[in-house]
Amino acid sequence: MSTKSNLPGLVRRYEKEIFKDWMKEQLADFSLRADLISETELRGQSAQFLETFREALEADGPASIKGRSWDELRTSLEEISKSRARLGFSPSETATFVFSLKQPLFALVQKEYESDPKVLSAELWTINLLIDKLGIFTMECFHKGREEVIKRQQDEMLELSTPVVKIWDQILALPLIGTLDSARTQVVMESLLQEIVQTSSMVAIIDITGVPMVDTLVAQHLIKTVSAARLMGAECIISGIRPQIAQTMVHLGVTFSDIATKATLADAIRSAFAAVGCRVVRREK
């Protein structure tokens, strides 16, 4: 297909018509998510996109979207896809934004080259390839956007799930809730040790009442945390070991010997108080 495509010229000449048709396509489509994006916003996005699209076409032609002239279009497409990923659009709803541009462009060249089937098919093919490339690019960006959302949520959860609390002068507690995987345990371990230094705490209670299962790897991480704290000059107490967990641990060959363990958080707090030289007494009536 060595003949030069007339698409850039056509788009410039009929930009207004294309825009009108395209908006009609997008608005008619069921996938317009009025709950997520307003019509005004969609119009703005589309108008801006079409303008950049025309500029890139005129500068570089429709053969590839990799060139410098397409930079701006790729960036804006990336923004649109990622923001849709964040807003909760589905993949097909996001892809429709670009793919719905096919219809108006097809209609345009069809009308323009009715009498010349050879040119017509060449132009149709050019449009097809171009829009497909943009569509694939959109999907890649959408996917990346989703991954960013997942990553951010993971980070947030990690932060939420490692609340190191100071329960008394020199005593810290870390109530762990939920499944512990290796990565999370490592983050927990680091933030606990950091907090020990910052608060100059002698005792840290790691409470695993809310942990449904402890496997060998997690147990090893717990043991390492206790060893590291000891190297720094602090003691750890592991509390909230439920009967089932104690059973599995012993079956796995993890005995936690050499580590202070308590069945309940209350027992752990009592022994932590003893370690820092405090005593709890009931007030006489």
Partner: peptide, 19 residues
Amino acid sequence: AITMVELGLSLSGVRTALD
């Protein structure tokens, strides 16, 4: 401390304190 544990060093016989 984390690195020492991973390395396999326990400093047995050495007392430690935070500050």
